[in-house]
Design a protein around this nucleic acid. Structure first.
Length: 498
RNA sequence: GGCAGCGUAGCUCAGCUGGUUAGAGCGAAGGACUCAUAAGCCUUAGGUCACAGGUUCGAAACCUGUCGCUGCCA
């Protein structure tokens, strides 16, 4: 039995989950489920990142201690995972004693690569990072991502000799030891390495920031939040002595957004090389989701709340759109119109209706008896190729060609006509063929739309039909007109969208 | 400014190492059917493959330049 370790980037819990986090989770979950189907033993990590300035400030705003604040945020994030149907196996908080212990252990291990130095520069508390003078100038002194002025900071910190690892990281990338998907992200990092990696400050003076993991042996410093957050991938396995660590290290896939590529493709590998342990096999880097072609931002007010989509249309509809219609490794676009069109046309009409028409004919012509069903014999080679290349959108396209083929097949054979002619045996054969196809579709669909997959599987699992109350993917016309009457009915409790 | 990439039907995009009349989905128009969530199926839509040169028997695909756009870096 093979092991498969998939990790998600642990989110910083200074806010509620957004679409980008959902992308992380859905991609990782799809991989995890797919590998379970392949028979692999899956370790699926999720968690939250709780230290640092931003959290401390946010907590203060609410009159809470930082830990009390993150305790409060924990259920928000865990409920989110639950709603998304994320099948994680292990959860880590960066305030867990285990995590703190591992982080301190690693700090000690890396001691030879640290030196004390002073750093003066512009800092963005939003980014939790220093920025170059040029960048400050280019942005007129205000961080464009956080709309906050940069602050001039001078600190004495522990520096990590990141600059010493460029060649080794480069080698690992070129040899494919550490693979970055898609390829152009690898080039970006190689470029970055080419231009020279600079040493990075891995600590913060305690007087400026007390909300962090203490640096072992130096009561005046706490760890830089990124340093210890990255360690979550190890601490969740109880590095270095835990059974999970021995069994599952290294990650087979780490799913991240493009905005944190540098941390995962430069700093993180350097840390692992310094620790002398294997690098992750693949960094799967997804793009951003745009709203009507523009970046989502609070100030524009065009932020799509994942919960609103899920509450209105169901988890599977949500997963479906983002896994099929947002390219896995590129930026994609969300509009309510596109989403609802895909939902009605593809999920309701093509798939949902197909399930229903087959079930209904079995009920009508055969009193619900399915009878003998041939084995699914669709050649799924290209599906698995796509899955292996992380091209989930293509893999879903493949499933949909199967859905369409079945609809075409029914149209060509016209079992309703055969039934009229009394050719009962042929009717049974045709419907059994459809059931076979649907079973196979349900199986392939499981990593993507587990709930719907299980419903379909259940309906057609036995010798006789198992009735399903209700409809798979009922039509919804809230953002597109209903062809019947040209009306669209906004959900009563849904806020207005532009 | 450096590096990478993109510009193909109204929209979203496929088109691998160059080879018959340039493809799919959506949207639009028409049609036959009735098992089904008034779903599904069939047909049609004529796009100088950004522009200009070049290489070649032959280029959307290779080279050069121009214009426009995006990402990463500076």
């Amino acid at each position: 039995m093979k092991k498969f370790y998939v990790a998600t980037a642990i989110p910083y819990v200074n806010d509620k989950p957004h679409i980008g986090h959902a992308m992380d989770y859905m991609l990782a979950d799809t991989l995890a489920r797919y590998h379970r189907q392949l028979g692999d033993e899956v370790f699926f990590e999720a968690g939250i990142d709780e230290h640092g300035n931003k959290i401390a400030m946010k907590a203060k705003e609410q009159g809470l201690e930082p830990k009390a604040y993150t305790d409060k945020m924990l259920p928000v994030w865990q409920d989110f995972l639950k709603k998304l149907g994320v099948s994680y196996t292990n959860y880590i908080r960066t305030t867990d004693p285990l995590h703190e212990k591992v982080a301190q252990h690693i700090w000690t291990q890396l001691k030879d690569y640290f030196y004390k130095g002073s750093y003066e520069g512009w800092y963005c508390t939003g980014c939790e990072s220093f920025v170059t003078d040029k960048e400050v100038q280019a942005n007129n002194g205000i961080c464009p991502d956080h709309n906050k002025p940069y602050e001039k900071l001078s600190e004495e910190n522990y520096f990590f000799k990141l600059s010493a690892f460029g060649d080794q990281i480069k080698q690992a990338l070129q040899a494919g030891e550490l693979k970055i998907v898609p390829d152009f992200r690898k080039h970006e990092i190689l470029n970055l390495i080419e231009s020279g990696l600079e040493d990075i400050s891995f600590s913060r003076p305690k007087k400026n920031l007390s909300w962090g993991i203490p640096v072992p042996g130096d009561e005046h410093h706490v760890m830089y939040v990124w340093f210890e957050a990255l360690i979550n991938y190890l601490s969740v396995l109880d590095y270095p002595d835990g059974a999970d660590y021995k069994k599952f290290w290294a990650p087979d896939v780490q799913v991240i957004g493009k905005d944190i590529l540098r941390f995962h493709a430069a700093i993180w590998p350097a840390m692992l090389i310094a620790l002398n342990i294997p690098l992750p096999r693949v960094l799967l880097v997804h793009g951003h989701v745009l709203a009507s072609g523009t970046k989502m931002s609070k100030s524009i007010g065009n932020v799509i709340d994942p919960l609103e989509v899920m509450n209105g249309y169901g988890v599977d509809a949500f997963r479906y759109y983002f896994l099929r219609h947002i390219p896995t490794t590129d930026d994609g676009d969300f509009t309510w119109e596109k989403f609802e069109t895909a939902y009605n046309n593809e999920l309701a009409n093509e798939l949902g209706n197909l399930v229903q028409r087959v079930a209904s004919m079995i009920e009508r012509y055969q009193d619900g008896v399915i009878g003998e069903v041939p084995r699914g014999r669709h050649d799924t080679g290209s599906f698995h190729t796509d899955m292996g290349n992380f091209q989930f959108d293509r893999a879903l396209n493949y499933i949909w060609t199967m859905v369409r083929e079945l609809n075409v097949y029914l149209q060509e054979v016209q079992p309703w006509d055969l039934a009229k002619k009394g050719d009962n045996q042929r009717v049974q054969e045709v419907l059994a063929e459809c059931v076979s196809g649907l079973r196979q579709i349900a199986e392939l669909l499981w990593p993507f739309l587990p709930t719907s997959s299980e419903v379909i599987t259940k309906i057609f699992a036995k010798e006789t039909l198992t009735k399903f109350n209700g409809v798979l993917f009922p039509k919804i016309y809230q953002h597109t007109p209903d062809p019947k009457n040209g009306k669209q009915v906004p959900a009563p409790d849904a806020p207005a969208h532009g």
